[in-house]
C-alpha cells in the first residue's frame, strides 16, 4: 500500500497522499499474549493528551484567586458541570467525572490533531466507536439495572396513541441501536474530513508556487474552522452521551 501511495504521489503531482496522515505506525511492537498491543503513533498522542490534560488540571496548588491555567481548568469544570446538571439533573452528578473525562479526552485529541505532523486519535473510527459503544452499552446496562424492564418504556413515549405504537416502537428501537454508530461516525467523519481537506489544500499551496497564496488564505480560514470543529465535536459527543445516560436515569420524560 505504501509503495502504491508513493507511486501515486510522483505520478499525480501531489507531494503527499492526504490519507497518509491517518496511517498507524508501530513505534514499539509489543505482543501481549496473542494480542498486538504495540505502542503506535496513535498511542503516543493518546498518552500525550492524557499528560497535557493532567498537567492542566493537576499542576500547581489550587488557589482561592485563580491564575490563568487554574481559571481554564475551572471554566472547563463549570462548563461540564452545568451541562451534566442541565441534561441529567442532580442524579447525573455521579456521571460527571466520566463525562468530564470523555469531553477532555476527545477535546485534547481533536486539538492535538491540529498540530502539524501530529496524529489525530479521534480520526479513527475504531477509537470513536469504542468510546461511543462504551457510553451506549453503559447507559443501556445502567438503564435496565435502575429501571428493570421499565426501561423498555423508552421505546413507547407516554401520550402516544395506541394506533401509532406499531410504527413508532420499531422506529424508536432502530434509532436507539443506531446511537453508537451515529455518535462515533459523527466525530470520526468530522475529524477525518477536516484533516483530509487541510492536507489537500496544503498540497495545493506547495504545488502551485506563488499562486499557492490563494489556497494558503483558504487554509488559514479552514484551520480556524477546524479548531472550532474540534471544540464543537467534543461538546456534541459529551452532550449526546449525557442525553443517552439521562434516558437511562429517566426513561419516561
Amino acid at each position: 500500500m505504501a509503495a502504491n501511495q508513493e507511486g501515486q504521489g510522483s505520478e499525480g503531482g501531489l507531494a503527499l497522499d492526504p490519507m497518509h496522515q491517518f496511517e498507524i505506525e508501530r513505534l514499539l511492537p509489543i505482543k501481549f499474549g496473542g494480542l498486538d498491543a504495540s505502542f503506535t503513533n496513535s498511542s503516543l498522542w493518546m498518552v500525550l493528551g492524557v499528560f497535557l490534560v493532567s498537567l492542566l488540571l493537576l499542576a500547581g496548588s489550587k488557589k482561592i484567586v485563580p491564575g490563568r491555567l487554574q481559571s481554564v481548568g475551572e471554566i472547563l469544570f463549570e462548563f461540564i458541570s452545568n451541562m451534566v446538571r442541565d441534561t441529567m439533573g442532580e442524579e447525573g452528578r455521579k456521571f460527571f467525572p466520566f463525562i468530564f473525562t470523555l469531553f477532555m479526552f476527545v477535546l485534547i485529541s481533536n486539538l492535538l490533531g491540529m498540530v502539524p505532523y501530529s496524529f489525530t486519535v479521534t480520526s479513527h473510527i475504531i477509537v470513536t466507536f469504542a468510546l461511543a459503544l462504551t457510553v451506549w452499552l453503559g447507559a443501556t446496562i445502567y438503564g435496565f439495572y435502575k429501571n428493570g424492564l421499565g426501561y423498555l418504556k423508552l421505546f413507547a413515549p407516554p401520550g402516544t396513541p395506541m394506533a401509532m405504537l406499531p410504527i413508532l416502537v420499531p422506529i424508536e428501537i432502530i434509532s436507539y441501536f443506531t446511537r453508537p454508530i451515529s455518535l462515533s461516525v459523527r466525530l470520526f467523519a468530522n475529524m477525518m474530513a477536516g484533516h483530509t481537506m487541510l492536507k489537500v489544500f496544503g498540497a495545493f499551496v506547495a504545488a502551485l508556487g506563488w499562486a499557492g497564496i490563494v489556497p494558503l488564505v483558504v487554509m488559514v480560514g479552514f484551520t480556524g474552522l477546524e479548531i472550532l470543529v474540534a471544540f464543537l465535536q467534543a461538546f456534541i459527543f459529551a452532550i449526546l452521551s449525557c442525553m443517552y445516560i439521562n434516558d437511562a436515569l429517566h426513561p419516561q420524560h
Binding site: 498486538d36 498511542s43 498518552v47 492524557v50 460527571f96 466520566f98 479513527h124 469504542a130
Partner: peptide
Amino acid sequence: APQLIWLAITFVTLYILMARTAL
C-alpha cells in the same frame, strides 16, 4: 487491537486521575 488497548489504558488513566484527584 493496539488502538483499543491503548485507548483503554489512557482513558482509564485519565478517568482515575480526574475522578480521584483533579475534579
